[in-house]
Amino acid sequence: MEKDVYKAFVVREKDGQFNANIETKKTADLPQGDLLIKVSYSSLNYKDALSASGNKGVTRSYPHTPGIDAVGTVQTSDSNAFKPGDKLIVTSYDLGMNTHGGFAEYIRVPAHWAVRLPQDMTMKEAMIIGTAGLTAGMSVQRLAALVNPEHGDVIVSGATGGVGAHSVAILNKLGYSVVALTGKENEKDYLKNLGAKRIILRKDFEVSEKRPLLKPAFAGGIDTVGGSILDNMIKSTQPMGAVACCGNAASAQLNLTVFPFILRGVALIGIDSQNYPMHQRQKVWNKLACDWKPEALMNNYDEIKLEQVPEKLDLMLKGQLKGRTIVNLAG
């Protein structure tokens, strides 16, 4: 039953300063959309931390409610695709960026942003996986079309981060020999528990290398950080291998020649998780619910209430938050 009012995490701007509080809002004031959804869970992502701190590259105008992930139950529907009572996942598109996001008890969104919650997945599991796991799934899906487990090692950068950790776990489950690349030397045991067969430290891999090609070492890779890491990953990929690129935290620049592509036939695959085609998105979610479910990560999460979101986002900005953090909005 729809409520007239609900709780939401709201960021407001005043005199160039940004402050966040839990506020009582009216459902009537939600943006236009086909679906009114009562949110059961959301999750914390780095984009949410940027939005909450006033990053105008993520969110243009305030007041605003972040939360790029949400899962919940349809309350009212103006779409033939969904009916009240349906359980849906909403991630990506503009949710939580410039559209009222999942850090609230209710959201209203266009129907084409929503994916049905797979039968073999709980709402909590959906948010433990979240955008990070979905992006990893997209990367694995595209990479697996070109690189088989028998082709050799597959390297994953940013391996302790959300996308990286999910990628390691999924690839391991599919029988790949995974090499985890990380800047965190004290997380080797964690990565091995996820399924990494070998660990490479970032400081040993990201050295600027002017040679156009390096010794072939990997059948493929998933890169989450960009910059010299991606440069060297491509240069180290064996003939007819492939690298999926889904992040640019280190840099958006590539410093390469065309030689890896025309002398070794290496493929560079771009992953756009924000606008990934819906029919493929549903396929990935269905795989994550069953064959690709990263069991090693399903118990590695922190569950918080809406009131704890400000504290956790601050820790995330400081690089002090490990693993997934999900927000329980169901009470």
Results as ranks from 00 to 15, higher is better:
residue 144 A to I: 15
residue 195 G to K: 00
residue 239 P to C: 04
residue 31 P to H: 11
residue 196 A to I: 08
residue 313 L to Q: 06
residue 281 R to M: 07
residue 246 C to H: 08
residue 39 V to S: 02
residue 61 S to L: 14
residue 174 L to M: 15
residue 11 V to G: 01
residue 111 A to P: 03
residue 49 A to R: 09
residue 247 G to E: 07
residue 234 I to C: 01
residue 196 A to C: 05
residue 162 G to A: 08
residue 114 A to D: 09
residue 37 I to D: 11
residue 165 A to P: 08
residue 187 E to W: 05
residue 209 E to D: 15
residue 128 I to K: 05
residue 134 L to E: 09
residue 83 K to A: 09
residue 278 M to R: 15
residue 265 G to A: 09
residue 32 Q to A: 12
residue 172 N to T: 14
residue 8 A to N: 01
residue 255 N to E: 09
residue 111 A to V: 02
residue 34 D to N: 10
residue 287 K to R: 13
residue 4 D to V: 09
residue 39 V to K: 04
residue 270 G to C: 10
residue 217 A to G: 14
residue 180 A to T: 02
residue 247 G to C: 04
residue 250 A to D: 15
residue 66 P to N: 12
residue 196 A to L: 02
residue 315 L to A: 12
residue 277 P to M: 04
residue 77 S to V: 00
residue 205 F to D: 07
residue 127 M to V: 06
residue 213 L to G: 14
residue 176 Y to R: 08
residue 106 Y to A: 08
residue 11 V to M: 00
residue 233 M to L: 07
residue 325 T to W: 05
residue 23 E to D: 13
residue 284 V to S: 08
residue 17 Q to L: 12
residue 97 M to I: 13
residue 131 T to W: 00
residue 264 R to I: 10
residue 12 R to E: 13
residue 193 N to S: 09
residue 235 K to W: 01
residue 95 L to H: 03
residue 36 L to T: 07
residue 303 E to F: 04
residue 254 L to W: 04
residue 33 G to I: 09
residue 164 G to T: 09
residue 220 G to E: 01
residue 279 H to C: 11
residue 296 A to R: 10
residue 46 Y to V: 01
residue 272 D to N: 14
residue 132 A to V: 08
residue 286 N to R: 14
residue 286 N to V: 11
residue 22 I to Q: 00
residue 252 A to W: 06
residue 202 R to S: 05
residue 257 T to Q: 04
residue 173 K to E: 14
residue 286 N to F: 10
residue 35 L to K: 05
residue 141 Q to C: 13
residue 154 V to H: 02
residue 283 K to F: 07
residue 281 R to K: 15
residue 197 K to Q: 15
residue 64 H to W: 06
residue 68 I to Q: 00
residue 153 D to W: 08
residue 253 Q to A: 13
residue 277 P to I: 05
residue 322 K to M: 11
residue 229 I to G: 00
residue 172 N to L: 01
residue 164 G to S: 04
residue 304 I to N: 06
residue 94 D to P: 07
residue 25 K to M: 14
residue 260 P to I: 13
residue 316 M to D: 07
residue 126 A to H: 07
residue 100 H to G: 05
residue 100 H to T: 15
residue 273 S to M: 10
residue 311 E to C: 09
residue 190 Y to G: 00
residue 146 L to D: 12
residue 52 A to K: 00
residue 228 S to G: 06
residue 194 L to K: 02
residue 72 G to E: 14
residue 129 I to Y: 02
residue 247 G to H: 05
residue 228 S to D: 14
residue 50 L to V: 12
residue 316 M to R: 03
residue 192 K to F: 09
residue 199 I to T: 01
residue 51 S to R: 02
residue 36 L to C: 01
residue 103 F to R: 03
residue 322 K to Y: 12
residue 301 Y to H: 14
residue 193 N to W: 01
residue 173 K to N: 14
residue 142 R to Q: 15
residue 279 H to A: 10
residue 136 A to C: 07
residue 73 T to M: 05
residue 266 V to M: 03
residue 144 A to G: 13
residue 176 Y to V: 06
residue 222 I to C: 00
